[in-house]
């Protein structure tokens, strides 16, 4: 049951082949926790309670331990986000090279503060810690791709080009 009393939907991996493959890679099942969570998040967009239960079942650990892991990592999302995640690096080099201007620009353009999602659900603006690409600062990661050393103009064009 969910806390509001509705029955919990069971989570099912659509790519069950991939799921089985991940599980078979680890002699100790609990080691599959992270890759399974990633797979589930790719499918669902964020980590639901049902995902926690499903992963716990496959890895044979307690759901609380899965939650311990999910909450530790910032790349697992606990709530639904927009289709495109605009992740602006906040750490030193990017900060010095205008990451804040990125954030301000996006906030103005879409009316979203960091952490918020546009009303059409297209974009979520996120501040993230070091993306490990300091040499090409400022860096913005959109979904899984890095975009490095952009000017505000280039950023603007890039955003407009997203369908």
């Amino acid at each position: 049951m969910n806390s509001n009393g509705t029955p919990k939907q069971k989570f099912i991996f659509t790519d069950s082949g991939r799921m089985e493959k991940i599980l078979s890679q680890y002699p100790d099942k609990r080691s599959a926790t992270l890759p399974l969570l990633h797979l589930a998040q790719t499918q669902e967009g964020f980590i639901t309670g049902a995902i926690i239960d499903a992963v716990a079942q496959y890895t044979e650990i307690h759901p609380a331990e899965v939650m311990d892991c999910v909450s530790f990592y910032t790349m697992f999302f606990r709530r639904p986000l927009g289709t495109n995640k605009l992740q602006v690096c906040q750490t030193l080099s990017c900060s010095l090279n205008g990451a804040d201007d990125f954030v301000d620009h996006i906030t103005q353009k879409y009316g979203t503060k960091p952490g918020e999602t546009t009303s059409d659900g297209k974009f979520t603006l996120l501040k993230v810690e070091c993306l490990g690409s300091c040499g090409t600062a400022p860096v913005i990661q959109i979904n899984n791709d890095y975009h490095e050393g952009l000017s505000i103009n280039e950023l603007d064009k890039l955003l407009d080009s997203i369908p």
């Binding site: 049951m1 309670g49 307690h62 759901p63 609380a64 939650m67 311990d68 909450s71 530790f72």
Partner: peptide
């Protein structure tokens, strides 16, 4: 019980339904 989040945000928690 588990430790939720990390660093300054860490806290002891239990899942709501467990």
């Amino acid at each position: 019980l588990f430790v939720e989040a990390r660093g300054y945000n860490s806290k002891i928690a239990a899942l709501e339904d467990k």
